[in-house]
Structure formats: structure tokens, C-alpha cells
């Protein structure tokens, strides 16, 4: 019999108060990149500024965003830890499975975010002018 105030399981899987937020970090990077890219472009086009600084700025921002997503994705991959236990469903009532499930979800979300960032950066490469 376990007391409600005691923890039997490994310390590293203890209720991660922030871990639910953590799965949204990948998409959040996408959102920030999207808003910044759109905002800067709108401003550049509305004010008639030259496009080259915008291209460089968005390029740097995109590289940073992709690096951030890769870093988050790598962390999530390690958290999912599928190479070690080959367990896909993570549906056991344990701290470990909850931990790995959140890692899996975050990993998949970082893939989607990566694709999203690449897509959104493409117009900047392909368009010669605002119009």
C-alpha cells in the first residue's frame, strides 16, 4: 500500500508541471516565425523598403527557428526513448509511459512545425518583389 504523499517511481518522471506546455513549444516556434515573417513583410511592402534586408532577416530567422525546432525535436526524441524499449503505444498507467507519450507527441509536433516553417519561408525565396 502506497501513501498518496510518497513516490515509488523514479524521480526523473515525477509529475512535470510544465510538460503539457512543452509539447506546444514546436508549434509555438512556428507561430512566432510565421507572425514575424508576415509582419516584417507587410511592413516592408507597405513602407516600400528594399526587399534584400527582409530576405536576409527572414533567412536568419528561419535558420534560427529550424535550429530551435530541431533542438526541441531532439529532446523530445530522447524523451520518447523508442530505440530502447520499442514501445509505441505508451498506454500504461505509469509515470514512465506518460513521460514517453509526451515525448512522442512533442516529437511528432516538431516534425510538423519544421515542415510548416520551411513552407512559410519559401515565398521569400521565390518572389522577386512584393507583387
Amino acid at each position: 500500500m502506497t501513501d498518496i504523499n510518497k513516490h515509488e517511481e523514479q524521480k526523473r518522471f515525477r509529475a512535470e508541471a510544465t510538460s503539457l506546455w512543452k509539447i506546444t513549444f514546436g508549434p509555438l516556434v512556428w507561430a512566432v516565425h510565421f507572425v514575424a515573417t508576415y509582419g516584417l513583410t507587410a511592413l516592408t511592402c507597405a513602407k516600400g523598403w528594399p526587399l534584400d534586408p527582409l530576405r536576409i532577416g527572414v533567412g536568419v530567422g528561419t535558420v534560427l527557428a529550424l535550429a530551435g525546432i530541431l533542438w526541441l525535436g531532439w529532446g523530445a526524441w530522447a524523451q520518447w526513448d523508442t530505440l530502447r524499449d520499442r514501445e509505441w503505444e505508451n498506454d500504461a498507467p505509469t509515470d514512465e509511459d506518460r513521460h514517453q507519450f509526451l515525448g512522442h507527441a512533442a516529437f511528432l509536433l516538431s516534425i510538423i512545425s519544421f515542415i510548416g516553417v520551411v513552407y512559410v519561408a519559401l515565398p521569400i525565396l521565390l518572389f522577386g518583389s512584393c507583387q
Binding site: Y38, C45, I112, I115, G116, V120, P123
Partner: peptide
């Protein structure tokens, strides 16, 4: 009449949402 380069972002994101 928004700048076409801006339309490009939204076109791209609209294609991306199909994946999930």
C-alpha cells in the same frame, strides 16, 4: 490587393495544414 508575397505565406500554410 495585399502584396502577393504575403499571399504566398498563407498559401503555403494552407497547404501545410493538410498534413495533420
Amino acid at each position: 490587393g495585399l502584396p502577393q508575397i504575403s499571399l504566398g505565406f498563407f498559401s503555403a500554410a494552407s497547404e501545410a495544414v493538410v498534413i495533420p
